[in-house]
Amino acid sequence: MIRLSVRDPADERRVLVDLTSAGRALEAEVLGVSIKIKSACRIADQGAADLRDTLETLGPPAAD
């Protein structure tokens, strides 16, 4: 499980969501991906944003 959700004891209408330790480990791994892409492509943040925008025009994201 990568996320944990519980009802807010102060307000039952709210659901509080947090990552489990496995989710936090995955989050750290995923954050490293953008750094590796920018380094491999030799681009800065704006170049990465431009690359993402270009890739998004190629097709819809894969369904989960």
Rank of each mutant, 00 (worst) to 15 (best):
residue 43 I to D: 02
residue 32 G to V: 06
residue 54 T to A: 10
residue 41 C to S: 12
residue 63 A to Q: 15
residue 15 V to M: 08
residue 23 G to N: 03
residue 28 A to P: 00
residue 8 D to W: 06
residue 19 L to S: 05
residue 24 R to S: 05
residue 41 C to D: 11
residue 4 L to F: 11
residue 28 A to F: 11
residue 47 G to S: 09
residue 46 Q to R: 15
residue 27 E to K: 13
residue 11 D to F: 04
residue 39 S to P: 00
residue 30 V to G: 00
residue 13 R to H: 09
residue 57 T to N: 03
residue 43 I to C: 03
residue 48 A to R: 09
residue 11 D to K: 04
residue 41 C to E: 09
residue 45 D to R: 14
residue 51 L to H: 00
residue 21 S to V: 11
residue 1 M to F: 10
residue 45 D to E: 14
residue 22 A to S: 13
residue 5 S to N: 04
residue 62 A to I: 11
residue 34 S to M: 01
residue 23 G to D: 04
residue 52 R to I: 01
residue 21 S to Y: 05
residue 44 A to K: 11
residue 51 L to G: 03
residue 61 P to K: 15
residue 6 V to S: 06
residue 46 Q to P: 03
residue 41 C to Q: 10
residue 48 A to K: 09
residue 38 K to M: 15
residue 22 A to R: 12
residue 64 D to F: 15
residue 1 M to D: 13
residue 48 A to V: 08
residue 64 D to G: 15
residue 5 S to M: 08
residue 29 E to K: 08
residue 23 G to W: 01
residue 56 E to Y: 08
residue 28 A to M: 13
residue 38 K to N: 07
residue 46 Q to M: 13
residue 31 L to C: 10
residue 33 V to M: 05
residue 24 R to G: 01
residue 22 A to Q: 15
residue 4 L to S: 10
residue 40 A to Y: 08
residue 7 R to C: 06
residue 5 S to K: 06
residue 16 L to D: 05
residue 60 P to K: 14
residue 8 D to M: 02
residue 21 S to E: 12
residue 14 R to N: 05
residue 53 D to Q: 11
residue 42 R to V: 11
residue 3 R to C: 13
residue 3 R to F: 13
residue 57 T to L: 10
residue 60 P to N: 09
residue 1 M to Q: 09
residue 39 S to D: 09
residue 36 K to V: 07
residue 27 E to W: 12
residue 27 E to S: 10
residue 13 R to F: 06
residue 31 L to K: 13
residue 15 V to K: 11
residue 24 R to M: 07
residue 12 E to C: 01
residue 64 D to T: 15
residue 20 T to C: 02
residue 62 A to D: 15
residue 41 C to W: 09
residue 32 G to L: 02
residue 61 P to S: 14
residue 51 L to V: 07
residue 18 D to K: 05
residue 5 S to G: 04
residue 58 L to T: 11
residue 51 L to T: 03
residue 59 G to C: 10
residue 2 I to R: 06
residue 16 L to K: 05
residue 29 E to D: 12
residue 35 I to P: 00
residue 45 D to C: 09
residue 57 T to A: 05
residue 28 A to R: 14
residue 10 A to L: 04
